[in-house]
Amino acid sequence: MTSPPALEAARLTLAYESRQVAHDLDVSIPDGAVTVILGPNACGKSTLLRALARLLRPRTGQVLLHGQDVQRLAPKELARRLGLLPQSSVAPAGITVADLVGRGRFPHQRMLQQWSHEDEEAVARALAATGVAELADRTVEELSGGQRQRVWIALILAQETPVLLLDEPTTYLDISHQLEVLELCRRLNRDQGRTVVLVLHDLNQAARYADHLVVLHDGAVAATGAPETVLTEQLLHDVFRLKARVVTDPVFGTPLVIPIAARNTAAA
Protein backbone atom coordinates (compact mmCIF):
# COMPACT_ATOMS: atom_id res chain seq x y z
CA MET A 1 0.00 0.00 0.00
CA THR A 2 1.60 3.22 -1.07
CA SER A 3 -1.30 5.68 -0.94
CA PRO A 4 -2.22 7.04 2.50
CA PRO A 5 -5.03 5.20 4.29
CA ALA A 6 -8.68 6.13 3.76
CA LEU A 7 -9.35 5.92 7.47
CA GLU A 8 -6.88 5.93 10.26
CA ALA A 9 -7.83 5.53 13.89
CA ALA A 10 -5.15 6.19 16.45
CA ARG A 11 -5.13 5.34 20.14
CA LEU A 12 -8.90 5.07 20.40
CA THR A 13 -10.57 4.50 23.72
CA LEU A 14 -14.19 3.57 23.03
CA ALA A 15 -16.76 3.30 25.77
CA TYR A 16 -20.48 3.40 26.48
CA GLU A 17 -21.17 5.10 29.82
CA SER A 18 -19.22 2.89 32.21
CA ARG A 19 -18.52 0.01 29.84
CA GLN A 20 -15.18 0.27 28.07
CA VAL A 21 -15.14 -1.54 24.74
CA ALA A 22 -11.67 -0.73 23.42
CA HIS A 23 -8.54 0.88 24.73
CA ASP A 24 -5.59 2.22 22.78
CA LEU A 25 -6.93 0.83 19.52
CA ASP A 26 -5.07 1.58 16.30
CA VAL A 27 -6.75 0.68 13.03
CA SER A 28 -5.86 1.62 9.50
CA ILE A 29 -8.21 1.13 6.55
CA PRO A 30 -6.40 1.13 3.18
CA ASP A 31 -7.71 3.45 0.49
CA GLY A 32 -9.42 1.95 -2.55
CA ALA A 33 -9.58 -1.56 -1.13
CA VAL A 34 -12.14 -3.94 0.38
CA THR A 35 -11.48 -4.37 4.07
CA VAL A 36 -13.32 -6.97 6.13
CA ILE A 37 -13.55 -6.72 9.89
CA LEU A 38 -13.84 -10.07 11.65
CA GLY A 39 -14.25 -10.94 15.28
CA PRO A 40 -16.41 -12.87 17.71
CA ASN A 41 -19.73 -11.49 18.93
CA ALA A 42 -19.52 -8.43 21.16
CA CYS A 43 -15.82 -7.84 20.49
CA GLY A 44 -16.48 -4.26 19.40
CA LYS A 45 -16.85 -4.41 15.60
CA SER A 46 -19.98 -2.26 15.47
CA THR A 47 -18.54 0.07 18.07
CA LEU A 48 -15.43 0.57 15.94
CA LEU A 49 -17.50 1.32 12.82
CA ARG A 50 -19.59 3.79 14.80
CA ALA A 51 -16.44 5.53 15.97
CA LEU A 52 -15.02 5.64 12.44
CA ALA A 53 -18.26 7.25 11.24
CA ARG A 54 -18.34 9.67 14.18
CA LEU A 55 -21.52 8.21 15.65
CA LEU A 56 -19.60 7.56 18.83
CA ARG A 57 -17.16 10.09 20.16
CA PRO A 58 -13.97 8.37 21.34
CA ARG A 59 -12.90 9.05 24.92
CA THR A 60 -9.37 9.46 23.66
CA GLY A 61 -7.65 9.29 20.30
CA GLN A 62 -8.80 10.45 16.92
CA VAL A 63 -10.11 9.25 13.58
CA LEU A 64 -8.67 10.66 10.37
CA LEU A 65 -10.60 10.43 7.11
CA HIS A 66 -8.15 10.94 4.27
CA GLY A 67 -5.97 12.77 6.74
CA GLN A 68 -8.68 15.01 8.20
CA ASP A 69 -9.99 14.72 11.76
CA VAL A 70 -13.63 13.60 11.39
CA GLN A 71 -14.64 15.66 14.44
CA ARG A 72 -13.74 18.78 12.48
CA LEU A 73 -15.99 18.04 9.49
CA ALA A 74 -19.50 19.47 9.21
CA PRO A 75 -22.08 16.67 9.56
CA LYS A 76 -23.35 16.83 5.98
CA GLU A 77 -19.83 17.14 4.58
CA LEU A 78 -18.84 13.97 6.44
CA ALA A 79 -22.04 12.29 5.19
CA ARG A 80 -21.05 13.07 1.59
CA ARG A 81 -17.66 11.43 2.10
CA LEU A 82 -18.46 8.45 4.30
CA GLY A 83 -21.58 6.30 4.56
CA LEU A 84 -22.38 3.77 7.26
CA LEU A 85 -25.06 1.12 7.16
CA PRO A 86 -25.81 0.41 10.84
CA GLN A 87 -26.64 -3.09 11.97
CA SER A 88 -30.30 -2.25 12.42
CA SER A 89 -32.56 0.59 11.37
CA VAL A 90 -36.32 1.11 11.37
CA ALA A 91 -38.35 1.65 8.23
CA PRO A 92 -41.12 4.14 9.06
CA ALA A 93 -44.63 2.67 8.71
CA GLY A 94 -46.01 2.77 5.18
CA ILE A 95 -42.84 4.09 3.52
CA THR A 96 -42.11 2.95 -0.03
CA VAL A 97 -38.80 1.57 -1.23
CA ALA A 98 -38.08 4.56 -3.47
CA ASP A 99 -38.92 6.97 -0.65
CA LEU A 100 -36.58 5.19 1.76
CA VAL A 101 -33.72 4.98 -0.72
CA GLY A 102 -34.29 8.64 -1.67
CA ARG A 103 -33.58 9.59 1.93
CA GLY A 104 -29.97 8.62 1.30
CA ARG A 105 -29.73 11.83 -0.73
CA PHE A 106 -30.24 14.05 2.32
CA PRO A 107 -26.57 15.13 2.63
CA HIS A 108 -26.67 16.33 -0.99
CA GLN A 109 -29.86 18.31 -0.57
CA ARG A 110 -30.65 21.72 0.82
CA MET A 111 -33.78 23.44 1.99
CA LEU A 112 -34.46 24.79 -1.49
CA GLN A 113 -32.84 21.94 -3.41
CA GLN A 114 -34.91 19.00 -2.35
CA TRP A 115 -34.78 16.81 -5.43
CA SER A 116 -32.22 17.53 -8.14
CA HIS A 117 -31.66 15.53 -11.31
CA GLU A 118 -28.52 14.10 -9.68
CA ASP A 119 -30.66 12.87 -6.79
CA GLU A 120 -32.99 11.14 -9.22
CA GLU A 121 -30.09 9.49 -11.07
CA ALA A 122 -28.28 8.41 -7.91
CA VAL A 123 -31.42 6.73 -6.57
CA ALA A 124 -32.02 4.98 -9.90
CA ARG A 125 -28.43 3.69 -9.91
CA ALA A 126 -28.67 2.52 -6.30
CA LEU A 127 -31.95 0.68 -6.95
CA ALA A 128 -30.51 -0.98 -10.04
CA ALA A 129 -27.24 -1.96 -8.37
CA THR A 130 -29.02 -3.71 -5.51
CA GLY A 131 -31.60 -5.33 -7.78
CA VAL A 132 -34.61 -3.71 -6.13
CA ALA A 133 -35.65 -1.37 -8.94
CA GLU A 134 -38.82 -3.33 -9.63
CA LEU A 135 -39.79 -3.00 -5.94
CA ALA A 136 -39.57 0.81 -6.02
CA ASP A 137 -43.29 1.39 -5.41
CA ARG A 138 -43.79 -1.35 -2.81
CA THR A 139 -43.85 -0.54 0.89
CA VAL A 140 -40.81 -1.71 2.83
CA GLU A 141 -43.03 -3.55 5.34
CA GLU A 142 -44.25 -6.04 2.75
CA LEU A 143 -40.74 -7.12 1.67
CA SER A 144 -38.84 -10.19 2.78
CA GLY A 145 -35.88 -9.82 5.12
CA GLY A 146 -33.42 -10.18 2.26
CA GLN A 147 -35.16 -7.64 0.05
CA ARG A 148 -35.34 -5.23 2.95
CA GLN A 149 -31.61 -5.55 3.60
CA ARG A 150 -30.86 -4.77 -0.04
CA VAL A 151 -33.11 -1.69 0.19
CA TRP A 152 -31.09 -0.41 3.15
CA ILE A 153 -27.89 -1.02 1.20
CA ALA A 154 -29.44 0.93 -1.66
CA LEU A 155 -30.03 3.86 0.69
CA ILE A 156 -26.33 3.97 1.56
CA LEU A 157 -25.37 3.60 -2.11
CA ALA A 158 -27.64 6.51 -3.05
CA GLN A 159 -25.55 8.57 -0.67
CA GLU A 160 -22.68 8.12 -3.19
CA THR A 161 -19.81 8.33 -0.76
CA PRO A 162 -16.24 7.36 -1.69
CA VAL A 163 -15.99 5.41 1.59
CA LEU A 164 -18.64 2.85 2.59
CA LEU A 165 -18.92 1.06 5.92
CA LEU A 166 -21.42 -1.80 6.04
CA ASP A 167 -22.16 -3.50 9.36
CA GLU A 168 -23.12 -7.13 8.70
CA PRO A 169 -24.74 -6.47 5.31
CA THR A 170 -25.17 -10.19 4.59
CA THR A 171 -27.06 -11.10 7.75
CA TYR A 172 -30.64 -12.20 6.96
CA LEU A 173 -29.71 -13.03 3.35
CA ASP A 174 -29.78 -16.45 1.76
CA ILE A 175 -26.50 -17.66 0.31
CA SER A 176 -27.03 -16.44 -3.24
CA HIS A 177 -28.09 -12.99 -2.05
CA GLN A 178 -25.09 -12.95 0.28
CA LEU A 179 -22.84 -13.51 -2.69
CA GLU A 180 -24.71 -10.86 -4.67
CA VAL A 181 -24.04 -8.28 -1.97
CA LEU A 182 -20.39 -9.27 -1.76
CA GLU A 183 -20.04 -9.14 -5.56
CA LEU A 184 -21.70 -5.72 -5.50
CA CYS A 185 -19.19 -4.51 -2.92
CA ARG A 186 -16.36 -5.82 -5.03
CA ARG A 187 -17.72 -4.07 -8.14
CA LEU A 188 -18.13 -0.81 -6.25
CA ASN A 189 -14.51 -1.15 -5.32
CA ARG A 190 -13.04 -2.43 -8.59
CA ASP A 191 -15.13 -0.36 -11.02
CA GLN A 192 -15.57 2.83 -9.06
CA GLY A 193 -12.56 2.76 -6.78
CA ARG A 194 -14.62 3.06 -3.65
CA THR A 195 -13.21 2.08 -0.28
CA VAL A 196 -15.46 -0.59 1.23
CA VAL A 197 -15.38 -1.80 4.83
CA LEU A 198 -17.53 -4.80 5.74
CA VAL A 199 -18.24 -6.58 8.98
CA LEU A 200 -18.78 -10.24 8.12
CA HIS A 201 -19.13 -13.44 10.09
CA ASP A 202 -18.33 -15.97 7.37
CA LEU A 203 -14.57 -16.51 7.49
CA ASN A 204 -14.38 -18.00 4.00
CA GLN A 205 -16.35 -15.18 2.41
CA ALA A 206 -14.05 -12.77 4.21
CA ALA A 207 -11.02 -14.59 2.87
CA ARG A 208 -12.38 -14.52 -0.66
CA TYR A 209 -13.59 -10.94 -0.88
CA ALA A 210 -11.19 -9.03 1.36
CA ASP A 211 -8.07 -7.31 0.15
CA HIS A 212 -7.36 -6.53 3.76
CA LEU A 213 -8.52 -8.12 7.01
CA VAL A 214 -8.81 -6.64 10.47
CA VAL A 215 -9.45 -9.19 13.20
CA LEU A 216 -10.75 -7.77 16.46
CA HIS A 217 -10.63 -9.57 19.76
CA ASP A 218 -11.84 -8.04 23.03
CA GLY A 219 -11.56 -4.53 21.65
CA ALA A 220 -8.04 -4.95 20.35
CA VAL A 221 -6.65 -5.76 16.92
CA ALA A 222 -5.57 -9.40 17.05
CA ALA A 223 -4.24 -9.44 13.49
CA THR A 224 -4.37 -7.33 10.37
CA GLY A 225 -3.16 -7.74 6.81
CA ALA A 226 -3.84 -9.86 3.72
CA PRO A 227 -6.17 -12.86 4.28
CA GLU A 228 -3.37 -15.33 3.47
CA THR A 229 -1.19 -14.06 6.30
CA VAL A 230 -3.93 -13.36 8.82
CA LEU A 231 -6.12 -16.46 8.72
CA THR A 232 -3.97 -19.00 10.49
CA GLU A 233 -5.00 -21.99 12.54
CA GLN A 234 -3.40 -20.40 15.59
CA LEU A 235 -5.44 -17.20 15.15
CA LEU A 236 -8.70 -19.12 14.75
CA HIS A 237 -7.82 -20.97 17.92
CA ASP A 238 -6.97 -17.85 19.91
CA VAL A 239 -9.68 -15.49 18.68
CA PHE A 240 -12.62 -17.64 17.66
CA ARG A 241 -12.02 -20.54 20.11
CA LEU A 242 -12.08 -22.75 17.07
CA LYS A 243 -10.17 -25.89 16.22
CA ALA A 244 -9.88 -25.68 12.46
CA ARG A 245 -7.77 -26.53 9.45
CA VAL A 246 -6.85 -23.85 6.94
CA VAL A 247 -6.29 -25.12 3.41
CA THR A 248 -6.11 -23.40 0.05
CA ASP A 249 -9.46 -22.97 -1.66
CA PRO A 250 -9.26 -25.19 -4.77
CA VAL A 251 -11.35 -22.70 -6.79
CA PHE A 252 -10.18 -19.28 -5.69
CA GLY A 253 -6.80 -19.95 -4.15
CA THR A 254 -7.74 -18.00 -1.03
CA PRO A 255 -7.52 -19.50 2.47
CA LEU A 256 -10.34 -21.93 3.20
CA VAL A 257 -11.24 -22.52 6.82
CA ILE A 258 -12.54 -25.96 7.73
CA PRO A 259 -13.98 -25.78 11.25
CA ILE A 260 -13.52 -28.97 13.21
CA ALA A 261 -14.74 -28.22 16.72
CA ALA A 262 -15.32 -25.39 19.11
CA ARG A 263 -12.38 -25.24 21.47
CA ASN A 264 -13.15 -26.08 25.13
CA THR A 265 -16.81 -26.73 24.42
CA ALA A 266 -17.00 -28.86 27.54
CA ALA A 267 -15.15 -26.38 29.74
CA ALA A 268 -16.97 -23.33 28.37
Partner: peptide, 15 residues
Protein backbone atom coordinates in the same frame (compact mmCIF):
# COMPACT_ATOMS: atom_id res chain seq x y z
CA UNK B 1 -38.44 11.99 9.66
CA UNK B 2 -34.86 10.80 9.16
CA UNK B 3 -34.45 10.36 12.91
CA UNK B 4 -37.52 8.09 12.87
CA UNK B 5 -35.38 5.54 10.97
CA UNK B 6 -32.95 5.28 13.87
CA UNK B 7 -30.39 7.59 15.44
CA UNK B 8 -27.40 5.98 13.75
CA UNK B 9 -28.71 6.09 10.21
CA UNK B 10 -29.93 9.68 10.64
CA UNK B 11 -26.64 10.82 12.08
CA UNK B 12 -24.61 9.17 9.36
CA UNK B 13 -26.81 11.06 6.88
CA UNK B 14 -25.60 14.29 8.45
CA UNK B 15 -28.39 15.06 10.92
Amino acid sequence: SLIEMGDDIAQQLGV
